[in-house]
């Protein structure tokens, strides 16, 4: 499995680039996918107030990292939110997070692991 498996796209904006860089640096993910969902939210009240937003307001992140071992879902969210505090202060509005450990994405043969 290669590091930084990511959906790097040519038109990634500065916010997306910065999110990717910080998550890569902090969590050394074995997989990281970031998708920009901003265009689906342009007409929302909050975004209308900002003239439709800057096109980088809503993202989904799928991240797999050993840093999430022994961490509950809320702790994983908090880790990511705090890593991206600057982005949230600068207009990042919503982040949908799917954070897993490598062990959790391996197909499980037995179900006794909760």
């Amino acid at each position: 499995m290669s590091r930084n498996v990511s959906s790097e796209s040519a038109q990634a904006g500065p916010v997306e680039t910065s999110i990717r860089q910080k998550l890569n640096d902090l969590f050394k993910p074995t997989a990281l996918e970031i998708s920009n969902d901003s265009s689906q939210h342009r007409h929302h009240t909050a975004m209308r107030a900002q003239g439709g937003g800057n096109g980088e307001t809503h993202f989904s992140v799928m991240i797999v990292s050993e840093a999430f071992e022994q961490k509950r879902s809320m702790q994983r969210h908090r880790m990511i939110y705090s890593a991206l505090a600057d982005e949230f202060n600068d207009g990042l509005h919503a982040l949908s997070i799917n954070a897993k450990t490598p062990a959790e994405i391996v197909p499980q043969g037995n179900a006794d692991m909760q």
Binding site: S73, M74, H77, S96, I97, N98
Partner: peptide, 12 residues
């Protein structure tokens, strides 16, 4: 007590 946002509630 804070439980979480959308993703967490959905997961739970």
């Amino acid at each position: 007590e804070f439980v979480g946002g959308c993703d967490i509630v959905m997961g739970m």
